[in-house]
């Protein structure tokens, strides 16, 4: 398949089940919302070493938040309910509750409960107050600037992690421009996040490596500097830069939609923009339950 002169390889992205949740964080100003969200979603790029993958889904205007203040929706994904609950409690406790003026609400209603205020209330040292409003339970935890209002629990949803596509570009500048165009397009969609810095990964990995005990190591097949040395290199002539976008979503459809708009944005730049081809990362279909075939996604 060719789109605007960009070759779309006939391959698939391999993704796997994850458990996800959505939180709504509000504060007095968008800047304080941003401060809380950046802190909370920091060091949450990959479950390989971070425990969870997280990012802001979208900013929320005041008329879309429970307390009529500026806010943001955040998605977090982990490999198990226990790990998700641990990461939610730690990150909300250390990064949201600590941020001036914030409040935290559940962004999902249906599904297994993930403790939110229920896990953090003990910080109130007995002065915390439970409040049921409109059929939902909240905790009011006294803090030094007033009260931290936090919904008692959020819900988990069966999500999909590891959706991806890989951009092969003529040079680094063209690769970055294509990746950033894709990031901007994907961030317009609900239900999906790009957990890596700026939404882009440059250090894509393969499973294992030559050193004992290594879970993952650099994806040598896609390293342009190793093209001449690695027999199984997948870097074509004329490609100097390769970037990957990894997508987590609340559903298979959300990941597929994100891949579609992302690849379309890359293809819009076309061969004239220095984009050579788009491919995807997989493990031969052995690891992930989900396979997103690029040609089907773009059909």
């Amino acid at each position: 398949m060719r789109l605007n002169g960009v070759h779309i390889e006939d391959t698939f992205a391999e993704a796997f089940p994850m458990l996800g949740t959505r939180l709504v964080i509000t504060a007095d100003t968008p800047a304080w919302v941003q401060a809380a969200v950046v802190s909370m979603t920091g060091f949450a790029t990959s479950v390989i070493a971070c425990g969870c993958e997280a990012a802001m889904e979208r900013p929320l205007p005041a008329d879309e938040t429970p307390d009529a203040r500026p806010g943001a929706a955040v998605l977090l994904f982990a490999m198990s309910k226990a790990e998700l609950a641990k990461q939610v409690a730690r990150r909300v406790g250390q990064c949201v509750m600590t941020c001036p003026g914030t409040a935290c609400y559940a962004g999902l209603r249906d599904g297994p409960a993930i403790p939110l205020g229920n896990a953090l209330r003990y910080f109130g040292d007995g002065w915390q107050i439970a409040k049921r409003i409109g059929g939902r339970r909240y905790w009011r935890i006294p803090v030094m600037d007033g009260e931290f209002l936090c919904e008692a629990a959020t819900a988990a949803v069966d999500g999909v992690g590891g959706g991806n596509f890989i951009i092969l570009a003529a040079d680094r500048r063209a690769g970055l421009a294509a990746a950033q165009a894709a990031v901007l397009a994907i961030r317009e969609l609900p239900g999906a996040i790009l957990p890596f810095p700026g939404g882009v990964v440059r250090s894509g990995s393969k499973i294992g490596g030559k050193y004992k005990g290594l879970i993952a190591s650099t994806n040598t097949a896609f390293c342009p500097t190793l093209r001449a040395a690695v027999p199984a290199s997948l870097v074509p002539e004329g490609v100097e830069s390769i970037l990957e976008l990894v997508i987590d979503g609340v559903s298979e459809a959300a990941v597929a939609a994100a891949m579609r708009v992302g690849i379309a944005a890359v293809a819009d730049l076309g061969a004239a923009g220095g984009v050579v081809s788009v491919t995807a990362g997989n493990y031969g279909g052995k690891l992930g339950r989900y396979q997103f075939r690029l040609h089907e996604v773009m059909a």
Partner: peptide, 13 residues
């Protein structure tokens, strides 16, 4: 005096 955010939720309800 202080701000009580939960009042906004009660008021909305």
């Amino acid at each position: 005096m202080n701000d009580w955010l939960f009042l906004e939720l009660v008021r909305k309800e």
